[in-house]
Structures are given as structure tokens and as C-alpha cells.
Amino acid sequence: MKHIEVVAAVIVRDGKYFATQRGYGEFKDYWEFPGGKVEPGESREEALAREIREELDTDIRVDDFLVTVDCDYPSFHLTMHCYLCSVVSGRLVLKEHENAAWLGIGELDRVAWLPADVEVVKEITAQTSR
């Protein structure tokens, strides 16, 4: 089975989490935390900053590691390294996604998350209840 390794930004502002809705491909209309693949020679943090600049026209600060999720999809295995992030500058312009939302902790279950992102939501919920 093909293995894909990615990074994802859990962008937090005023107690809300930034979620994006896919506008293309096999998982169109599902929600996710934005991010992408690490290019050769990049650290995970550098890749995350680049991906958010490319996808959302925004500069972020990678604040803390949150969780690594492993998830089997029908045609591949995904390893996703997730980081809590803050916006440094930019307006979170959607270049690849069809929709976005700022969701409070009690609203995270109101959207249809991709399977790997469901695990991230569980981790966020667990950490905020501690």
C-alpha cells in the first residue's frame, strides 16, 4: 500500500480552530486542517509554513507539535504530523479549498472531517478537557 506523509496546521485564534473544506478530488466536500507534503530538504515546520503560504496566502508561526496520526484510506496509508499554529500575517485566502470556518471546541463535530482529521479533533478535544 502506498504511504503518504504530510503536515497539517491546526490554526488557532481566539479559542477557535480554522478548518477548510476540500473543493476537489476523491475527498471533495470533506473538511480538513490545511497542509501538505514535505519537500526534500525541508523540515516539517518549513513545509507547513510553505504550504499555508501557497494554499491560503498567509504566513503562520508553528507554535507546538500537537499529534501524529496514522490512518488507512482505501488506496493509501497516511501519516499526518499536526502542529498548533498562529497567523502572523495574511487573510487566509482560499486558493484550493471551497469553504472554510472558524470552529469553537463545541462546534468541531458539526462538519464532515476526513478520517485522519477526525483523530486530530479527538486529540484537540482531549487536550482542552484536561
Results as ranks from 00 to 15, higher is better:
1 M>Y: 12
2 K>S: 08
4 I>W: 03
4 I>V: 15
5 E>P: 01
6 V>C: 06
7 V>I: 11
9 A>F: 03
10 V>G: 07
10 V>Y: 02
10 V>W: 03
11 I>L: 08
11 I>T: 12
11 I>D: 03
12 V>D: 06
13 R>C: 06
16 K>D: 09
18 F>Y: 15
18 F>E: 05
19 A>S: 08
19 A>Y: 07
20 T>G: 01
21 Q>I: 02
22 R>G: 07
23 G>Q: 04
24 Y>W: 14
24 Y>M: 03
26 E>R: 11
26 E>T: 14
28 K>A: 12
29 D>I: 01
29 D>W: 14
30 Y>T: 12
31 W>P: 04
32 E>Q: 10
32 E>F: 03
35 G>C: 02
35 G>M: 04
37 K>I: 15
38 V>S: 04
40 P>T: 10
40 P>R: 12
42 E>V: 03
45 E>Q: 11
47 A>N: 10
48 L>P: 10
48 L>H: 00
53 R>N: 01
53 R>S: 12
54 E>V: 12
55 E>K: 10
56 L>R: 01
58 T>V: 05
60 I>L: 13
60 I>K: 02
60 I>Y: 05
61 R>T: 13
61 R>N: 13
62 V>C: 06
63 D>Q: 14
66 L>M: 09
66 L>G: 03
71 C>R: 06
71 C>E: 14
73 Y>T: 10
74 P>A: 09
76 F>G: 07
76 F>C: 01
77 H>Q: 13
78 L>P: 03
78 L>D: 06
79 T>V: 14
79 T>W: 04
80 M>V: 14
81 H>A: 14
81 H>N: 15
85 C>F: 09
86 S>Q: 15
86 S>D: 14
87 V>N: 01
87 V>W: 07
87 V>M: 06
89 S>W: 03
92 L>M: 06
93 V>L: 08
93 V>R: 08
93 V>W: 00
93 V>H: 10
94 L>E: 07
97 H>G: 01
97 H>W: 09
99 N>M: 02
100 A>I: 07
100 A>H: 11
103 L>K: 05
103 L>S: 06
104 G>S: 13
105 I>Y: 02
106 G>L: 08
107 E>V: 00
107 E>K: 01
109 D>V: 00
109 D>R: 13
110 R>G: 10
110 R>Y: 07
112 A>E: 11
114 L>D: 02
115 P>S: 04
116 A>N: 12
117 D>Y: 10
117 D>E: 14
118 V>Q: 13
120 V>E: 05
120 V>L: 11
122 K>P: 00
122 K>D: 09
123 E>H: 08
123 E>P: 00
123 E>Q: 15
124 I>Y: 10
124 I>V: 12
125 T>L: 12
126 A>G: 07
128 T>E: 15
129 S>E: 03
130 R>D: 09
130 R>V: 08
